[in-house]
Design a binder for these strands. Sequence first.
DNA 1: AGATGTTGTTGATGCAGATCAATCGCCGGA
DNA 2: TCCGGCGATTGATCTGCATCAACAACATCT
Lengths: 239, 239
Amino acid sequence: MKISVLGEGMHCRSCHDCTARGFAICAALDKTELRELAQLSRHVRFESGATVFAQANIATSFFSVHAGTLRLYKLLPDSRRQIVGFALPGDFLGLPGLPHHEFSADAVGRVTLCQFPKESFATFAEKRPQLLRRMVELAGHELARAQEHMVLLGRRSAEEKIASFLISWRDRLSGIGRGGEILPLPMKRLDIADHLGLTIETVSRTFSKLERDGVIQTFASGVVLLDTPRAEALSAGVS
Amino acid sequence: MKISVLGEGMHCRSCHDCTARGFAICAALDKTELRELAQLSRHVRFESGATVFAQANIATSFFSVHAGTLRLYKLLPDSRRQIVGFALPGDFLGLPGLPHHEFSADAVGRVTLCQFPKESFATFAEKRPQLLRRMVELAGHELARAQEHMVLLGRRSAEEKIASFLISWRDRLSGIGRGGEILPLPMKRLDIADHLGLTIETVSRTFSKLERDGVIQTFASGVVLLDTPRAEALSAGVS
DNA sequence: AGATGTTGTTGATGCAGATCAATCGCCGGA
DNA sequence: TCCGGCGATTGATCTGCATCAACAACATCT
């Protein structure tokens, strides 16, 4: 049987067997509501590097990540960049109550998303306390992650930053059932640098150092944690 | 008439004429609901430096700041500290869905708070979509602030950090009707340093430089912005 | 196969901000 | 009035990471 490829603007055929279901916003919904919500949504796809939305533009949609990774970033006028996070399947993009996008988002590799028009999603959510509760919960988790990242940016050394990043990336992936021996890093060195408040050279040097020290082994598409306890100690900020 | 001083454990006498009402979570409630919620709450007071709750402890209450300033911070095992934010009147403390406090909070100067037992607040909120909507909204604003702060921590120079901090502090104060010629800074230099990812010496030097350059004038209890456009330019990351 | 572009690594050098250290102003208590 | 402690300021020096520069490893195109 031929797998049909989803194009931009195509309706989601089935939320029921969606692989991102368990962790996404829709986990809060029952079968009927799920079908209703599916009516509002479109499945959209973006190729590697494509911009999903840009900072300061008016937000007309919310998104829920279905597959792939996105980088979420803010730019300063002189083009310094801070990646405020990476979005993975199940993550919700968009903040009710803020008219503009607070950051830009683009695809790291190929990405598929559920897109909801802001207005109709808001109307749908208005009368559904469990959905709202779930949104508060997701926002809370996001906020906790953001605060942890502030500690990293403000108070950790380059080596600790890299180790923390690897550990938290591993934990996020395993949280959505993507754990494994090899830790895939779909983003480039420059993305990691702009996420951790470092330069690309320092990121590269630090990976090399961790490899020399036997903490990790690097591959084209990711790393393997050889000495997890050591990585976790660095990540925790001990020694 | 003698003003009675509220002690720990005393009930809030009147949410109706609460000075933090307009911006707090309670703005979403009508008169009846307000009275119901008041039944659940206690007004509590903390003296300067007192700890309201500590990171990793089980959260049994939510709080809404009534008056004063709190510092919210995370500690690394070796006692490095990152202040993830300052809470002002109207700010809500506590995240539904996370059992533990994600950070510690203590009073900067005298503080009064509305305290809600977590369980009863959750029950109260469960059936009130406008309240939940308001919580999503507040969480969204908080998240946007956190992301802006990541840019500051990861990508700005010391001078830009101080200028950004002053501008955003000014904007927050004016947002709750506390704007004015002189910008009060109730927190100490060490707090500012731990908020901006700097040392106390660099903070002090940078204040001195901004004063030498005629951008600000420092006082015991705050600063005056003499050259606001220049401060805003630094804050925006231009030049 | 050779040319070209993209990404990552490594080396040499510079500098912003950390660290170490001394001093000052201010307030409260003896 | 003097003393002790805390917070802030300022100076001297050090260092972790940025910057500048060269090159290596691959992939894509001709």
